[in-house]
Amino acid sequence: KELVLVLYDYQEKSPREVTVKKGDILTLLNSTNKDWWKVEVDDRQGFIPAAYLKKL
């Protein structure tokens, strides 16, 4: 499984997104879309802008 580091706080703006904090380490589920990556946060799955994440 691939992990990503959150570079900036992000507040979800729709039900398909998730809220994260800078410094969080998340499981990356899908990065095929270059703009929005799907991650897992506390048993929730959702999207975050790829620019907010860095692969570890």
Rank of each mutant, 00 (worst) to 15 (best):
K1D: 09
K1Y: 13
K1S: 11
K1V: 13
E2C: 14
E2W: 12
E2Y: 10
L3I: 08
L3M: 11
L3N: 06
L3T: 08
L3P: 04
V4I: 05
V4C: 11
V4T: 03
L5W: 06
L5D: 01
L5G: 02
V6C: 08
V6A: 07
V6R: 00
L7N: 02
L7C: 06
L7W: 02
L7E: 03
L7K: 05
L7T: 04
L7S: 02
Y8R: 14
Y8Q: 14
Y8E: 12
D9R: 03
D9E: 05
D9Q: 04
Y10W: 09
Y10L: 01
Q11D: 14
Q11W: 14
Q11F: 15
Q11K: 15
Q11E: 14
Q11V: 12
E12A: 15
E12L: 12
E12Y: 07
E12I: 10
E12T: 09
K13F: 06
K13P: 05
S14R: 10
S14W: 07
S14T: 12
S14A: 09
P15C: 09
P15E: 12
P15G: 09
P15I: 10
P15Y: 08
P15A: 12
P15D: 13
P15R: 08
R16Y: 15
R16D: 12
R16I: 12
R16L: 13
E17P: 06
E17S: 06
E17T: 07
E17A: 06
V18A: 05
T19R: 05
T19F: 04
T19N: 05
V20G: 05
V20L: 03
V20Q: 01
V20S: 03
V20C: 09
K21A: 09
K21V: 09
K22F: 05
K22G: 06
K22T: 07
G23L: 02
G23D: 07
G23Q: 02
G23P: 00
D24I: 06
D24T: 14
D24L: 09
D24C: 08
I25P: 00
I25H: 04
I25V: 13
I25Y: 04
I25R: 05
L26G: 12
L26P: 01
L26R: 03
L26C: 11
L26M: 04
T27G: 08
T27C: 10
T27Y: 13
T27S: 10
L28S: 02
L28I: 05
L28E: 01
L28M: 03
L28D: 00
L28T: 01
L29Y: 04
L29F: 04
N30R: 07
N30H: 07
N30F: 07
N30E: 15
N30M: 10
N30S: 15
S31T: 09
N33W: 09
N33C: 11
N33K: 07
K34F: 09
D35W: 15
D35Y: 15
D35L: 15
D35E: 15
D35T: 15
W36V: 04
W36S: 04
W36K: 03
W37C: 03
W37T: 02
W37H: 03
W37M: 02
W37G: 01
K38A: 10
K38P: 01
K38W: 12
K38M: 15
V39D: 00
V39E: 00
V39I: 10
V39Y: 01
V39C: 08
V39G: 00
E40S: 10
E40D: 07
E40Y: 07
E40T: 08
V41T: 12
V41G: 07
V41P: 01
V41L: 10
D42K: 14
D42H: 13
D42I: 11
D42Q: 12
D42V: 12
D42L: 14
D43C: 13
D43M: 10
D43P: 03
D43H: 12
R44C: 05
R44N: 06
R44K: 13
R44Y: 06
Q45E: 13
Q45K: 12
Q45S: 14
Q45I: 14
Q45Y: 09
G46A: 09
G46P: 03
G46M: 10
G46H: 07
G46F: 14
G46R: 05
F47Y: 15
F47V: 07
F47W: 15
F47Q: 03
F47K: 02
F47I: 08
I48Y: 01
I48H: 00
P49H: 04
P49Q: 04
A50R: 14
A50V: 07
A50I: 04
A50P: 07
A51D: 08
A51I: 13
Y52V: 11
Y52N: 08
Y52F: 15
Y52H: 09
L53P: 00
L53G: 06
L53K: 00
L53E: 00
K54C: 15
K54W: 11
K54R: 15
K55Q: 07
K55I: 11
L56S: 03
L56W: 09
L56Y: 09
